[in-house]
């Protein structure tokens, strides 16, 4: 019964994806076109003959609506077209190379953040209002409030330039080059998760069923593991959906500072260069990633929380 409910829910969500994406594509398509300037504007003006050739090659000479439908037709077949800016690459190729990098760095950062964040949060909650609690949460506050463009250069100076332990940036899929970006990305998330966990853990520990468990004489370790942990991380799980999406789609700041070839820079560079196809490709891809992740979070949520079962809705 429960299985069936989840399946039905999944099907509805997947169907809902289509109008959402269509809306996203339409808004993004016209927004980037409305932005002043075009992909071939630069400080050096092109002779009109060359300009006309470029417009013809990229179909920019057609009416906007025709371009829109041409684009829709093209992406139906899964082809995002050639990038205007990186002329030797198609948008598909760029996403295929950029996303694994962003997903690896972001995924590792999320993993690190989840493990450390919940550990810190639970520790702080168990030692509520002690020196441990205050110092751990104080450090977590620092993690949230210091921006990553400050932390990253400091980490590079310390570990790469002066100590010489790690490379100062670049990418070759070796773990050495992943360490610093993963830590930098994870720091604020660790802090956020720690705060969430601490808050909900304290709340859960005060609830009646925990009192019952303790009254039954269960060891404290068991109480925490079996009865308190699952409900306490529920808010963390719902936070992790959008947070994971944000991490694995790439951060421009981190990518710039560590020179990592992730997806985030393509999005920003694409928008700044009016690289229409690249921006559109990345926007659509982002849309799909975010929708899918939210859906996964819903499933995990249902699994963790017996109060939510999708069959009950009907």
């Amino acid at each position: 019964m429960i299985q069936e409910g989840i399946l039905r829910h999944a099907a509805t969500r997947l169907l809902g994806l289509i109008p959402t994406l269509l809306l996203l594509i339409t808004i993004a398509f016209f927004m980037i076109r409305v932005a002043p300037g075009g992909p071939f504007d630069s400080e050096k003006v092109l002779p009109p003959e060359i300009r006309a050739n470029l417009d013809a090659k990229y179909h920019l000479d057609e009416p906007l609506l025709q371009q829109y439908f041409r684009y829709l037709g093209q992406i139906m077949s899964g082809d995002f077209g050639p990038s205007f800016q990186y002329k030797d690459w198609t948008v598909n190729e760029l996403i295929a190379r950029g996303f694994p990098v962003s997903a690896t760095v972001g995924g590792l950062a999320m993993l690190l953040a989840f493990v450390l964040g919940t550990l810190i949060g639970i520790t702080a909650a168990l030692k509520q209002n002690t020196a441990t609690d205050y110092s751990v949460m104080g450090v977590a506050m620092l993690g949230i409030s210091i921006p990553n463009f400050v932390i990253a250069p400091l980490l590079i100076l310390g570990t790469a330039v002066y100590a010489g332990w790690l490379p100062a940036g670049g990418w070759d899929w070796s773990w050495q080059r992943m360490v610093l970006p993963v830590i930098t990305l994870a720091l604020p998330v660790i802090a956020y998760i720690a705060r969430l966990t601490r808050g909900s853990m304290i709340e859960v520990l005060h609830s009646n069923y925990i009192r019952t468990a303790r009254a039954k004489g269960l060891p404290e370790r068991m109480v925490i593991r079996r009865h308190a942990f699952k409900p306490a991380i529920l808010p963390v799980i719902s936070y992790m959906g959008p947070a994971t999406a944000a991490l694995i789609t790439g951060s421009v700041v981190i990518e710039r500072i560590y020179s990592i070839p992730g997806l985030g820079s393509y999005f920003v560079q694409g928008a700044l260069n009016r690289d229409y196809t690249l921006v559109m490709g990345v926007v659509i891809f982002y849309g799909i990633v975010i929708i899918v992740l939210n859906f996964i979070v819903d499933l995990i949520y249902a699994w963790l929380n017996p109060r939510i079962r999708y069959d009950e809705a009907s």
């Binding site: 250069p153 100076l157 790469a160 330039v161 100062a168 940036g169 710039r256 500072i257």
Partner: peptide, 18 residues
Amino acid sequence: YLPIEDQSTEVNRFRSGD
């Protein structure tokens, strides 16, 4: 040829021998 957009990163990579 290493494309390094950020100038400070480039200096750091030079300083670390990269």
